[in-house]
């Protein structure tokens, strides 16, 4: 039983990271119907930037700085690379994101080298006697949880709540939702549609950057580090429903946990840890066959 909870808890932690990156993917998909294949590489690059900043600065100085840089990068990419193909068929834009994937990955290797680097977890903070983050583990009865796993979970939940509040209660958030639904009517409301897309990319890059900063301590910092995460994030986003931010995070959690459980509890002979990816993907496909637009996704509206 302890093993079970252990698997669940670590699954929740990695699942939160998948969920965060999935959230980043969903933010872009909702407004432009584009699957951003460069999402993981954007996060990887900002994590490398973070690493460079950490060579001379504190973690908590670096953190906001990196988020701002990420937002700037997202906005820049939208304005300079995505804007020229806006309105092109979706597959074309997907290929553009694949091109960005190659560029970002190559630039990171060129600038920082391919050798894996250690990356620190957020350092310990104590607020009114309660300890947050840092090294070590916390005993929670059935099992122990590492502080970093807890940190990841807290960040994921906090970001989700923040985004919910942003989209639900601020004029800008509302305008972004409106733009995603009906760009022409949005313009008639005085909304600058182009600017909303830029903000969407900036936001998405920022959320992705957090995912990168949180996963790097677990998997080492190196150019291909986000590739596997990206694939799981895609799966999570699709599982939850590509237009649902909540679905993205829930999808990530489901995948993180089921991946661990499949690895531990299926027969080693013909499934087991070697096949956990395959079985997890199979589960996702089965769910999709029952709900073709994901668990929380809206039914596809057919246009004639």
């Amino acid at each position: 039983m302890e093993e079970f909870w252990q698997q669940v808890v670590t699954g929740i932690a990695t699942g939160s990271v998948y969920g965060l990156l999935a959230l980043a993917i969903v933010l872009i998909y909702r407004s432009t119907s584009v699957l951003n294949f460069a999402q993981g590489e954007m996060a990887m690059l900002t994590t490398f930037v973070a690493w460079s900043i950490l060579q001379w600065g504190e973690y908590w100085v670096m953190f906001p700085l990196v988020l701002v840089i990420a937002a700037g990068m997202g906005a820049f990419i939208e304005r300079v690379i995505i804007r020229p193909v806006e309105g092109a068929p979706v597959l074309n834009i997907i290929i553009v994101t694949l091109g960005m994937f190659a560029i970002l990955n190559n630039v990171a290797t060129w600038r920082w080298g391919g050798i894996p680097k250690g990356f620190p977890a957020p350092p310990e903070i104590e607020v009114t006697g309660i300890r947050f983050m840092g090294e070590g583990a916390l005993d929670i009865g059935p099992t122990v949880v590492s502080y970093h796993d807890l940190t990841i979970l807290v960040f994921a939940v906090a970001i989700m709540v923040a985004l919910y509040v942003f989209f639900q209660y601020t004029p800008l958030g509302l305008a972004m939702r409106a733009t995603a639904q009906n760009p022409v009517a949005s313009r008639l409301m005085g909304i600058r549609v182009g600017r909303m897309l830029t903000v969407g990319w900036a936001l998405s890059a920022t959320v992705g950057a957090v995912a990168g900063l949180l996963i790097a301590p677990l998997i080492l910092l190196q150019p291909p580090m986000m590739m596997g995460v990206l694939l799981f994030a895609f799966a999570a986003a699709v599982l939850g429903g590509l237009d649902s931010p909540v679905g993205a995070v829930v999808g990530g959690l489901i995948i993180g946990v089921s991946e661990n459980l499949v690895g531990t509890y299926t027969p080693k002979e013909w499934l087991g840890p070697d096949m956990k990816l395959t079985v997890t993907l199979l589960i996702i496909v089965v769910v999709l066959l029952i709900r073709p637009t994901g668990i929380f996704g809206r039914r596809a509206m057919r246009r004639v």
């Binding site: 690379i81 290929i95 553009v96 694949l98 091109g99 960005m100 994937f101 190659a102 560029i103 990955n105 190559n106 630039v107 060129w110």
Partner: peptide, 9 residues
């Protein structure tokens, strides 16, 4: 590889 990516774009 960056050259390739730029070519795609």
């Amino acid at each position: 590889w960056a050259f390739y990516g730029a070519a795609l774009i």
